[in-house]
Design a protein around this nucleic acid. Structure first.
Length: 261
DNA sequence: CGCATTTGACCAGCGC
DNA sequence: GCGCTGGTCAAATGCG
């Protein structure tokens, strides 16, 4: 009996240590975000200086296109089970399917069309199609911005393992990492708006070309947006906590203090 | 019976 | 003008 208590106490101690580690990681994440932000600011300043010089030299300046976050459709990649042939992705919102194309010009896989049905007036639409390179990857293209919140009751996953996982990485589709290398974040924990996630193909393409300015256009508003950063941090913490607690054979119902964000 | 999904038809935009 | 393609509509169908 005493031995069991000691074991449990030892486990509890480890959980507490893990909790502290997570807080440190969160602080590090926050710090890195700030550094990234300041770095982007420096790049921005440099570009502005270059632009000023060009103006002074009298050459014609082509206006750098602004990235309209509200207008540009965003793409999100969902990794699904290879045997799962459905085009449904659980992204936290409720969608009504209103159409499907069997094939499209650039992709032989069927494309499904969805409207957000959480709110009747919500203008958001999404298209879902399988990736050409990897059939287990669903590419969801979102258009518009939700004019309502997300209903968390609808977000509760039926199991502890999410059926679909967002790919938080910027690797080319031909070089997808193994599952163990992929950060799988349960979107149900994230309250962010899908249109705030800009992991588009063109971002990757621009990244390949080494274009800082394009990436900056996407990243800068994100790191300034607490609505993106905070839920992301929450989701990361929850994901890490889940893994940690599984390791020690405890679940999240121990009443341990949540990391203060 | 009500709701969601499927699927063929229809329409608009675009290039030739 | 014609054909192709992407997007949407709406009737039919399936399911709980």
């Amino acid at each position: 009996m005493d031995q069991e208590v000691e074991t449990l106490e030892a486990k509890l101690q480890r959980v507490k240590e893990d909790n502290r580690t997570l807080r440190v990681m969160l602080e590090t994440l926050s710090s890195k975000c700030e550094k990234l932000q300041s770095h982007l600011q420096e790049i921005n300043n440099e570009e502005q200086q270059v632009g000023t010089k060009s103006d002074q030299s009298g050459s014609v300046l082509l206006a750098r296109p602004e990235f309209s976050m509200a207008q540009k459709p965003s793409q999100i990649f969902f990794k699904t089970h290879p045997k799962d042939n459905s085009l449904m992705v659980k992204d936290g919102y409720q969608w009504k399917k209103y159409g499907q194309k069997k094939v499209t010009k650039d992709n032989p896989s069927p494309r499904a069309y969805f409207k957000c049905s959480l709110a009747p007036s919500c203008p958001v639409k999404k298209r879902v199609q399988r990736s050409i390179q990897d059939k287990s990857i669903l590419v969801a293209t979102y258009e518009g911005k939700h004019n309502h919140g997300v209903f968390h009751d609808l977000l509760k996953p039926s199991s502890s393992i999410p059926e679909t996982s967002i790919m938080i990485n910027n690797l080319p589709m031909t070089n997808m990492p193994n599952d163990k290398d992929t950060v799988n974040i349960d979107l149900a924990l994230c309250n962010w708006d899908q249109t705030d996630i800009r992991l588009c193909d063109d971002v990757k393409q621009q990244n390949d070309r080494g274009s800082k300015s394009k990436i900056e256009g996407y990243v800068s508003p994100l790191v300034k947006d607490p609505d993106f950063i905070m839920p992301l941090a929450e989701a990361v913490v929850h994901s890490l906590k889940s893994q940690t607690y599984k390791q020690v054979g405890l679940n999240l119902n121990l009443g341990l203090p949540e990391p203060h964000l």
